[in-house]
């Protein structure tokens, strides 16, 4: 993915080129949608959340000071949206009614060669998702950013506004917590 094009697209969008906005959305939609899915675990809700995030990008692009920092700015904005939506949905009991067995709730393991293998992998993916979902919000956040979004420590440090050492130690704690939740499966 040509993420290095983002600053140029932001510049063009600010100058009134709305196709540039569309291209920015196309560039980041997979990551933002999956980040949203990691929080709300339901496809329609994740789509709505991702759309709200990009609507905010459209309306607040002038608040971005440095175009080269678009990625970090987008993730900060996205995380704020995700945290708020997560809290709101949790208060409404959204997650208590949600079954993690639901096959549409997000990430899948890479496809296997046979239906049996596929089933086994899907089952494993479900368990891993369930374990990630059971982490505290702070633990889940750092796992999503590093292990699923594959961001660098430097990027995560920018997004969370934390020193890199703190990011690493938070990540280590989150991974240990995840390991403990998966212990019976390993």
């Amino acid at each position: 993915m040509p993420y290095h094009e983002a600053p140029e697209l932001v510049r063009a969008f600010r100058q009134g080129d709305h196709q540039a906005f569309n291209r920015l959305v196309t560039l980041y939609q997979r990551k933002i949608y999956n980040l949203a899915l990691g929080y709300v675990k339901q496809e329609d809700e994740a789509k709505d959340l991702a759309q709200d995030i990009f609507v905010t990008v459209y309306r607040q692009i002038d608040k971005l000071k440095d175009e080269s920092k678009f990625g970090a700015w987008l993730y900060q904005l996205a995380l704020n949206h995700c945290r708020n939506r997560y809290q709101r949905l949790r208060r409404r009991g959204f997650f208590s009614n949600q079954s993690l067995d639901d096959p549409e709730t997000g990430l899948n393991l890479s496809s296997g060669a046979t239906p049996e293998k596929d089933y086994e992998r899907q089952n494993t993916a479900r368990l891993v998702r369930e374990a990630i979902a059971s982490l505290t919000p702070a633990e889940k956040e750092v796992i999503l950013l590093r292990d699923l979004q594959e961001l660098s420590y430097e990027e995560i440090s920018d997004i969370l506004d934390l020193p890199m050492g703190t990011v690493k130690s938070k990540l280590n704690r989150a991974r240990l917590a995840l390991k403990n939740r998966l212990k019976h499966f390993l």
């Binding site: 997979r30 949608y33 999956n34 496809e43 789509k47 991702a50 993916a125 891993v128």
Partner: peptide, 15 residues
């Protein structure tokens, strides 16, 4: 296990 999870494609009507 975590790294083997694949992300989902976004819905076509997102944009």
């Amino acid at each position: 296990l975590v790294h083997s999870l694949e992300s989902q494609p976004p819905p076509a009507d997102l944009l």
